[in-house]
Design a binder for these strands. Structure first.
Length: 536
DNA sequence: CTAGGGTTAG
């Protein structure tokens, strides 16, 4: 009787519809013994009828005490986006099992309500591996890789053995964070557990190694794979592009097509990305044409974004502008932002103002664009315009994301922000920097203060520059790691020109490979030069 | 059986 209430309350809220008999039969899990078919039918139905029919069928047939069935209903409502109904049912249920909870958590995560999902996760009386996975994947998806890794640690502590799905989610978090140590550990664990050859796992390993700056390790995983999917190829091409190995990326694409693998839209993003990183305008144009002509792939906004970036970074600003005006789909903030970025490199204030006007209409809360514009004005010493941009930011309630760099030493992540004095060894770091600075000056280094966007005295600017987060992280790395070992630094924003010049020199002075992960690519500094060949 | 995973422009 108790169970009856659950159904009755619900059917009062929703009028059951019985008017489509064939679908009704097909969707009914007790008439159609093929459950996955039945479920599919239900899901389709629910899209059309808002869920009422299946529920009605089940009620009429009088199946009331089957928890499996109730879970199915909760799932069906939830998967059609009817979270209110799903939650209502969930709360009315006299009994729930771990699956019921997992269904709710999974759907909440899919709808990007991670807080809601975590709320339920915290309340669960017992958790299965799937509960942990749902939550870990949720944190990864919403850009909280640290929380994902924290949860993974707790899962291990709870004595649960991660399976291949967990591994994929955690590796994605490692990729986001550049957490190479954990990534390597998971790689070992995967091999030991026997799913190190799983295609999904390998694809994620490739991505993890790429984003942690270990291109060779990524390549090894790729080369050892038994079966490569288009995802594997695309990931590897994108990785080579990200590391400035443009020719190698194009070669891989040639190899791929030679053996008959068909590229998809993502593959072309990787290829265009590769062209962008070397200013290969003709090749980029040719790929853009090829994707539609040879493969029938309709360019998406991302592809247009790549093209605008390619053209404008190469200095073809007017052409980039016309390209945007003529594109068949509505440009977004990123597309105009790419033009803005090119205007900065090539110091074109007029076009920058046109670009920013469009950017701000489309994406007014993204601080990055204001900063670029402010930089353009600052480089032209137009300080009144700089302060106008700052006021605009204030009015919009937009704050500049502080630049921060991190370096991992013995498994511990050390994070630095500009002028950071919070590190216990801050004083030593600053001293080491001064010493390094002297050697750099001997090699002809001049601080490039034009990248400092504030209107202040030159010596003040130098101070700001000297304490950019990547420099602090680097000096710390030099102090804490054995001579000649490579140093890996992760940065949340793009490197500035001054840091780029400084890091080049330092790599020669201290005879170290310095690998810096930018917001969107890698710079590998070695013997006084950078893998990006100064085009970035 | 009802719940889970990979590559994506600046």
């Amino acid at each position: 009787m108790e169970d009856n209430t659950w159904i009755t309350v619900q059917s009062q809220q929703l009028t059951p519809l019985y008017s489509i008999p064939t679908v009704k039969e097909f969707a009914n899990p007790f008439v159609n013994s093929n459950l996955s078919q039945s479920k599919q039918a239900c899901t389709q139905l629910l899209d059309v009828l808002n869920g009422r029919i299946v529920h009605g069928v089940i009620e009429k047939l009088g199946f009331q005490s089957n928890l499996f069935l109730k879970n199915s209903i909760v799932h069906l409502y939830a998967s059609c986006g009817e979270m209110d109904i799903a939650r209502f049912l969930f709360e009315k249920m006299p009994q729930r099992d771990v699956v019921t909870w997992n269904i709710m958590i999974t759907r909440l995560v899919k709808q990007e309500d991670v807080d809601g999902a975590f709320g339920l996760f915290s309340q669960m009386p017992e958790r299965s591996v799937r509960s942990w996975i749902a939550m870990i994947a949720g944190f990864v998806q919403c850009g909280k890789p640290k929380d994902a890794i924290g949860l993974f640690t707790q899962m291990e502590e709870a004595g649960l053995r991660p399976n291949e799905v967990t591994v994929v989610a955690v590796l994605a978090a490692c990729a986001d964070l550049g957490a190479l140590d954990l990534g390597r550990r998971i790689h070992d664990y995967s091999n030991q557990s026997g799913f190190g050859r799983n295609t999904h796992v390998c694809n994620t390993l490739i991505d993890m190694y790429i984003k942690c700056g270990c291109l060779e390790a990524a390549r090894r995983v790729f080369d050892d794979m038994e079966e490569r999917t288009i995802v594997s190829w695309s990931a590897m091409i994108q990785g080579l592009a990200m590391h400035g190995q443009v020719e190698e990326a194009l070669k891989l694409f040639a190899r791929m097509t030679r053996i008959g693998i068909k590229p998809n839209g993502v593959t072309f993003i990787g290829l265009l990305h590769a062209c962008n990183h070397m200013g290969l305008i003709d090749e980029g144009r040719s790929f853009f044409a090829k994707m539609t002509n040879d493969y029938g792939i309709i360019p998406q906004i991302e592809h247009y974004g790549c093209m605008v970036d390619l053209l404008s970074r190469a200095g073809l600003l007017q052409e980039a502008h016309d390209f945007i005006i003529n594109m068949p789909i509505k440009p977004n903030g990123v597309v105009w932002g790419a033009l803005l970025g090119g205007c900065r490199v090539h110091k074109h204030i007029e076009l920058a103002e046109e670009a920013i006007k469009n950017v701000l209409e489309l994406d007014p809360l993204n601080d990055g664009y204001y900063v670029v514009l402010s930089n353009i004005y600052a480089e032209a010493k137009r300080w009144e315009d700089v302060s106008r941009v700052r006021k605009l930011m204030r009015d919009q309630g937009v704050k500049k994301t502080p630049g921060s760099s991190s370096i991992t030493i013995d498994g511990v992540v050390h994070e630095f922000v500009a002028g950071d004095e919070t590190n216990p060894q801050a004083e030593e770091i600053f001293q080491r920097w001064e010493k390094l600075l002297q050697e750099m000056r001997l090699k002809g280094y001049e601080p490039n203060t034009s990248v400092v966007l504030l209107d202040m005295e030159e010596n003040e600017k130098e101070k700001v520059l000297n304490h950019h987060s990547e420099k602090l992280a680097l000096v710390f790395g030099l102090m804490k790691t054995p001579t000649r070992t490579p140093i890996r630094i992760m940065k949340n924003l793009r490197v500035c020109e001054d840091c780029h010049a400084a890091l080049k020199l330092i790599s020669g002075i201290v005879d170290r490979e310095i690998i810096v992960r930018d917001r969107n690519r890698f710079h590998c500094f070695k013997d006084g030069s950078c893998s990006c060949k100064d085009y970035w």
